[in-house]
Structure formats: structure tokens, C-alpha cells
Simulated scan of single mutants.
Amino acid sequence: MRVSEMDMYSPSTVEECLYFLHEEEKSSRLLAGGTDAVVRMKDGYFRPEIWINLKRLDELRFISEAENGIHIGPLTTHTDIVKSELLQEKADVLVGASREVGAVQLQNMGTLGGNLATASPAGDTIPALYVLDAKIEISSFHDKKVVPIHEFFTGPGRTVLKQDEMITNIIIQPQGENEIGIFEKLGPRKAQSISIVNVAINLKMGENPRECLSGKIAFGSVGPTIIRSKKCERMLTLGPLDETAIQNIAGAAWKEVMPISDVRGSAKYRRSMASALLERGLHRLMQRWDER
């Protein structure tokens, strides 16, 4: 099937799009930035009968703060995220992840909702959303629900989204004044490729030197979905995050990840790099915290 043989539908409102998804019997696929969808189609992974072009739905491109968190529209681009002063102040880990999503051209086109719906274990923004306790708003023509991000993914490339549903909002919890985050990535080429391993870290710091009150750590590309490193998270609060503590925490990560071997790296290499990235990330966070 050639691209020219497929139909393209471009709704002008979210309601119109949801109605189309509800009524249409042919196979369809939502198209946001298209940075991943078109590539996958050319590789033969999926070729729907109808593409639904979301580019006209400006109502799904927003960044705003409300009482229950920061709301980000699914059509918000990675460039929008990087340039947002609100997210720079209250979601630095997500800004850091969006800054690492390919080249500038991909950041201009790629969307946060597209990264979620693609559901790649190597998706750069997804670990950042995990450590910010993201919730995904899912809408259909007759219903709307909110799903915690850890319940959204069911496996590599798979989510709870049904054929007649779409993401309409992403809600994250803003960082407090005593919280800091970072995103670390290992790829074959700097900022131009799919992650071999990535990790997002968010820490809530105390008043004593390098005292961590709580923390969240999420690894990507080392399992079928994102892996929260619960053991490492518990170790964050055992004492000051000095050199020895950071090395011990990073060493524990080796046992928590579940990578596979593929063309981008062996399982053993990924385990080692998961520990190394966590150690580097914690060191950089502590340097930033010390300078405050």
C-alpha cells in the first residue's frame, strides 16, 4: 500500500475528531507531529486506511497551571516545553528530556502526546513524566477518564488507548522550591538518536547538607516499559548524598533494570550504563544543589 492510496482526515475541533473516531469503521491512526508514525509506516509496522491529522486542533496545544497541577496539551511540541518559563521553573526534568529529543527539527515537530501514544520504552519524555507523577486524560465521544501514567502503558508500543479514544491532556505535579530534577541519556550520537539507556531523577531536598527527603528515579530503554527504581529511591533517604552514598545507590540500579540485547546495545552494557547514568545524574544534581 502506497501513501497516496490512504485517506487523510483533518478535523477542526476535538469534538469532531472524537465523533469521527466513534463512527468510523475503517482502521485509522492519529497523526500529530508525524516524526515517528510516518517512519513506522514506511518500515511496514502499521498502515492504516485513514490518517487523522491533528495539526488543526490548536485547543490541544497549551501549557497552563491549575490547582491540581500543570496541564500540558498533547499537541504541545518539545520546543514549546523547552521554551516554557513555567516548566523551566517547576518541571526542569521534563524540559531536560524534551531538549534531548532528537535534533531541533524533531523538537519543533514532535509532540508530547505523540511520544506517549507511541509508547516506546526508549521515549525520552516518558521517564520524566513518571517522576513528575503524570496523569493522562483520555477522551472518547461519550466519556472522559484520567489514568496514572504507570497504568497507561501495557507493553512495548502498547497503551490502554482504545480505537475511539485519544489523549486530550497531560497533568503533572509541579516541583516545589526544594525539588530538583535531571534527565540523562545515552545514545549512539549526541541528541540525535534513540536512547540506548535514559534516566529521569527528581529529588526533594531537606535543610541539612545534601539531605534528601524523598526521590523518584525512572529508567527508560531497559525494560518492556519504564522501570521505577524503587530500591534506589529508598536508598536516597538513608543519609547525605555524598560520594559513597551516590556510588552505592548507582550500584543497586544494576539489579533493578531488565534490559534486552539488540542492535543498539547488549543487556550487560545497558545494565552498566544504567548505573553510570544514575551516578552521573546524582552527582550533577548535588553540584547544582550545593551551588544554591
Rank of each mutant, 00 (worst) to 15 (best):
R2L: 11
E5R: 10
D7Q: 14
Y9P: 02
S10C: 12
S10T: 15
S10Q: 14
T13E: 07
E16Q: 13
L18A: 05
Y19F: 12
Y19D: 15
F20D: 01
L21C: 04
H22N: 15
E24C: 12
S27D: 12
S28A: 14
R29G: 07
G44M: 06
P48Q: 09
W51N: 01
W51K: 02
N53H: 14
L54C: 11
R56Q: 14
L60M: 13
T76E: 03
T76S: 15
H78R: 05
I81R: 05
K83E: 13
E85G: 02
L86M: 11
Q88C: 10
E89S: 14
V93G: 01
L94Q: 10
V104C: 02
T111F: 06
G113T: 07
G114L: 07
G114M: 06
N115W: 01
L116F: 09
A117D: 05
A119T: 05
P121L: 09
T125D: 04
I126T: 15
L129F: 08
L132C: 02
K144H: 06
H150M: 03
H150P: 00
H150C: 05
F153C: 04
T154A: 02
G155D: 08
G155C: 03
L161R: 06
L161H: 10
I167A: 05
N169I: 06
N169T: 08
I170W: 05
Q173S: 15
G176N: 13
I180E: 13
I180H: 10
F183Q: 06
E184A: 11
P188E: 12
K190C: 08
Q192W: 10
A200G: 07
M205E: 03
E211D: 09
C212R: 00
L213Y: 07
F219C: 00
G223Q: 01
I227T: 14
C232A: 15
E233G: 05
L236G: 09
P240L: 08
L241S: 03
T244P: 00
T244W: 08
A245G: 02
A245W: 02
Q247V: 11
N248P: 01
A252T: 11
M258L: 12
V263S: 13
R264I: 06
S272P: 00
S272V: 09
M273E: 12
H283F: 11
H283P: 00
L285Q: 01
M286K: 04
R288G: 00
E291T: 09
